[in-house]
Structures are given as C-alpha cells and as structure tokens.
C-alpha cells in the first residue's frame, strides 16, 4: 500500500516536472530568452569596473525605481489644487505607511541627485563619453536634466513657502524663454497663477517626465549594452 502511494506520488511529481519543462521550453523558444541568457552567461565584467565608483549609475537606477514605486503610492493621495495640496500632503502622514512613503520618496530624490552627479563626474573624469559612446553620454546628460526637472517640479507640489520661492525663481530664470515661440508655450505655465503653475508642475512630474525618463533610460541601457563600458585608463 505504501509502495503504491509512493509510486503514484513519484508519477505525479514527474508529470508536474514534465509540464514545468514544457512551459519553460515554450517561454524560452517564443521569447528568444535562450540567446539572451547564453550571451549574458559568457559576458564578463572588466576588472577595472569592479571599483565601487562604477556602481553609481546602478545606485541612481535603484533610487529612481524607489522613487517611481513610492510616487505611485503618493499620487493616489495627493490633490493638485492650490486649496488642497498642502492639506493633502499633511494628511498623507495619517494614512498607513503614508509618512514613511513620503519620507522615502524625498530621501530617494536626494540620493538620486547625489548619485547621478557623481556618476556624471566619473564618466567625465575617465573620458568615457568619447567615441563610440557619444549617444550613451547624450542620453545620460538628458537624464541628468530630467532628474533635476523631476526634483524641481516635485518641489512645487507641496505649495508651501519654499514652493513659492522656487516658482518665483524659476519664473525669473526662465523669464527670457517665455517669449520664445514653442519654448514659451512649454514653460508659460510658470508665469501664470499659482493653480496654473501647480497643474503644470504636477502634469510634468507624473506624466511627461516619467515617460521621457523611462524612454531615455531604456535607450541609455541599450547603448551601454551595445558599446559596453569603456576600457581602463
């Protein structure tokens, strides 16, 4: 009796194993994962790149992912109107994990800026922007600008005293740009009223900047994969 039960159990496991193998083979054959995995297994990370300063791009990416995840949570609780913005941010702290999420979002933003600045400096000092990695550098600079824009627009969202100072300074700094066709249309909201500025900042912060950031990030990674990292000095 015990032997029969053991035998049927082993048949069941073997059947399940067979199904698992078939599903795995199907996924691998349809997705081309085999080529990718084979290529990745053969790849080696150069010795000079094992230095921690070569991790700064990865640190920036991790911080950006943390920003994206906590941002999704916060976007559900934040209300982008002049009357409710400040209040809704205060109320986030009353929701479970709300304060924690807000704090993580803010600190991850700080870490992103520090990491991306140091990463850019490392790439500059090691001359890694040179031929054939021009596109990797260009997409990196665009990502740097987008990151600063992220933080600036996020800075306006609480609609507190500091947000007003930021909005006024930005309005002054971009003062000349407002009169330029097209560019003026993009940044014109800064010269408008508080609600117009808040709507513009929120729209940029949760739609255009994440979309642009994701696109350039994918392109940046594609370029790194295509040309690899630069050799030792």
């Amino acid at each position: 009796m015990a032997e029969e039960s053991e035998s049927s159990m082993s048949k069941l496991l073997s059947g399940l194993g067979g199904i698992f193998t078939k599903v795995r083979d199907w996924i691998v054959s349809r997705s081309g994962l085999e080529d990718f995995m084979g290529e990745t297994k053969q790849k080696k990370v150069p010795k000079h790149a094992l230095n921690p300063v070569y991790c700064l791009g990865g640190v920036t990416f991790v911080a950006l992912v943390v920003l994206g995840l906590t941002g999704l949570y916060l976007a559900g609780l934040y209300r982008p109107t002049v009357l409710e913005a400040q209040q809704s941010i205060q109320q986030i702290s009353d929701v479970p994990f709300g304060f924690y999420m807000k704090s993580i979002h803010s600190w991850a933003a700080n870490l992103t800026i520090i990491a991306i600045l140091l990463h850019t400096l490392r790439v500059f000092i090691t001359g890694s922007y040179k031929k054939p990695r021009e596109f990797t550098w260009l997409s990196g600079v665009i990502l740097l600008v987008l990151t600063f824009s992220f933080v600036l627009t996020g800075y306006i969202l609480p609609m507190d005293e500091r947000a007003d100072v930021t909005r006024e300074t930005l309005s002054g700094v971009l003062g000349g740009v407002k009169d330029i066709p097209l560019l003026g249309d993009v940044f014109g909201w800064l010269a408008g009223g508080a609600q117009e500025a808040l709507t513009g900042a929120y729209w940029l912060h949760v739609t255009l900047l994440p979309l642009g950031g994701a696109l350039f990030l994918v392109f940046h990674f594609y370029m790194i994969r295509k040309h690899g990292i630069s050799g030792p000095l």
Binding site: T40, K43, V45, P46, K47, L111
Partner: peptide
C-alpha cells in the same frame, strides 16, 4: 580587462542584488 574580470552571471548579478538591497535599506 574583461578576461581578468568577473562573470556577469551569476557573480556580478548577485553582487548587484546586494547593492540594490543596501541602497534600498539605507534609504529606508
């Protein structure tokens, strides 16, 4: 440099996972 380097999979990936946990932990 690559010849003298470390295999990407699994060695480097495991270390990068460690960096991810470390960075996330520090932020938290």
């Amino acid at each position: 440099a690559e010849e003298a380097g470390r295999p990407f999979l699994p060695n480097h990936v495991v270390e990068e996972m460690g960096v991810i946990f470390l960075v996330t932990g520090i932020i938290m």
